[in-house]
Design a protein around this nucleic acid. Structure first.
Lengths: 341, 341
DNA sequence: GTGAAAGCGCTAACAG
DNA sequence: CTGTTAGCGCTTTCAC
């Protein structure tokens, strides 16, 4: 099944190639009847223009490269999905590249993508900390999603814009929800302090507790790891240090799972004695828990979509600047129902 | 930074375009010194041939389309990673397409990929049951990974080959391991019976129990759902029906988690009283569990890699036929250590 | 209104 | 050994 070319269409319609092209693209002035004849021929032959030829001529490929350092992990996947969705709607195809966090692979992919004349690049990651920019003077727009370039981009100014989740807002939403449901001894167990996301979420939480004069249970944020194990360990610690705790906001759903297990083992009921709110809204984790976990959803697909929109705008000549944040949303489930008291 | 063209290189080296091409591609007979001069010019100018032009001419794009129905879920991601890895090594780039299980989207993507003249297609899924073939007479080879086409492919014979995990082997490995570690009352809790994967895993387990005259604890496979909730429920059921059970092989890690929680709640110790083996070796699940879960790893990346290899072979004119199975491996962790007795 | 011709960047066949 | 030519499929002047 060879592809029909415009030549075939022209022959079939009894016109020249140039005329056929004009007819198909609505260019120039042609007799409507000619246009129709060409359209008809194209339809009959199942003609579709060869994008390679078009690209060669136009210098635009309608492709973009998506580079992830995250092995398509839990975070970058939804981001990529959202981006792919938004780009696909604009008839843009996506080359996917997984660098496995290897700078050398990243470089190879970058060369390949530029070589293939992509119209733009989306770089995704698993951590929001600034990373070395992917390259300067590439000649194509770059948008970062779930990660951001460090520095201000060198001599040429910023090398691209970035779209990030609203970690501060997420922490605040969790805190507000716990306050609203009557909790007054709220603790925070989260990942390593060196993670910007952990610090921002903590800041968001503090931001809503402080105005109400509600201190953090245990007096401080319990930084540790992003693991269930740490959740279990920290919960034990917390029960000893601050037995009055009636709510725990966790920096991840995995931590929340560990916390839940430890509370149950210690004979505390969730949510009656202690409410739990997680972060990520990672379905298998939050729905598998007993009771199901309330959690902050970063709306990763929206981040991807936003990044794609910014990229399309940049390709169109209207580059976004700086960092943009996408709001998340709190999903309330049984683990943080109102205290029964 | 405009891309240097072969014309620039030719000019810089003081030769004609044709000569430059030959020099760069090692064709024809040229004076070594000329070759060197051209190579030098290319290097200096950072020349890289325009793949669009090459593709236009050669009718090969060195791109393949990867279509997933799974929204890049837990199963298709590692598969895609493996495939992308193997293809990337062959300098082939991957267009990624997520159909969200929507036949119409699938069709759109298919048209787009064929239109872009991909050299081949990889179709991945989340279930191994036969699915409607993606299309017949596409003119490009297709390999299915983690899914397979139904029918025998219509008038033209099979429309492509398929690469699947070894579910039977996985079930057998789990059973053998439990027998070897001294368990004799082995139960099986798994997902819905309508899932081929569930039936195959059960078959594998039975295949190793039967020869040793070891009956299945509770007398039958407990089919249910792929969820923690079902794991909890089924474990309760099992303890009532077959209190002597000393090992449970679970059809998924999520089920295994639920089982573990229920056993703990019932006062049974893992692994001392009852061993647990899961399936999928899904790291966040198996490592987060307490104790960490033994689990069967389907080696999804290998499946992807195998699919990519088959596709490359097919593109090269040596299409694979039928269904190929990739061996998994059992990862033993604390949840199935030998009975202490 | 329509056709002929040039050219996007490259390779392959043929002259010289 | 090297240069010239044709052409992949398409769009876009520019004549007619």
């Amino acid at each position: 099944m060879r592809h029909a070319t415009i030549r075939d269409v022209a022959a079939d319609a009894g016109v020249s190639i140039g005329t056929a092209s004009k007819a198909l693209n609505g260019q120039g002035r042609l007799r409507p009847e000619t246009r129709e004849r060409v359209a008809e021929a194209a339809r009959r032959l199942g003609f579709a223009p060869n994008p390679l030829a078009q690209a060669l001529l136009a210098g635009r490929t309608y492709t973009v490269g998506m580079i992830t350092t995250d092995s398509f992990g839990r975070f970058s996947i939804p981001v990529m999905l959202g981006a792919e969705d938004a780009l696909g709607a604009g008839r843009i195809s996506v080359f996917m590249c997984d660098t496995r966090d290897d700078p050398e692979r990243e470089h190879r992919y970058l060369e390949m993508l530029i070589g293939r004349r992509v119209d733009g690049l989306i770089v995704t990651g698993r951590r929001i900390e600034p990373r070395p920019p992917i390259g300067a003077g590439l000649g194509v727009p770059v948008v970062y999603a779930m990660t951001q370039p460090d520095g201000s981009g060198g001599p040429d100014g910023p090398v691209g814009s970035a779209v990030l989740p609203d970690d501060v807002g997420g922490g605040a939403a969790a805190g507000a929800h716990l306050l609203e449901t009557g909790r007054r001894h709220i603790a925070h167990i989260t990942g390593p302090e060196r993670f910007l996301a952990a610090r921002l979420r903590a800041r968001g939480l503090r931001g809503v507790l402080a105005p109400g004069g509600v201190p953090l249970a245990a007096g401080e944020v319990l930084y540790g790891e992003w693991s269930e194990r740490w959740g279990r360990e920290a919960a034990g610690l917390l029960l000893r240090r601050a037995p009055a705790t009636d709510a725990i906001f966790c920096g991840s759903d995995q931590i929340a799972r560990g916390v839940g297990d430890a509370l149950r083992a210690a004979g505390r009921r969730v949510p009656d004695d202690i409410a739990i709110v997680g972060f990520d809204n990672w379905e298998p984790m939050v729905l598998g828990a007993d009771p199901p976990l309330s959690s902050v959803d970063m709306c990763l697909e929206d981040i991807g979509r936003a990044a794609a929109e910014d990229l399309l705008a940049a390709i169109g000549g209207e580059p976004a600047r700086g960092v943009r944040t996408v709001p998340g949303r709190l999903v309330v489930r049984a683990s943080s129902a109102s205290a029964s008291s």
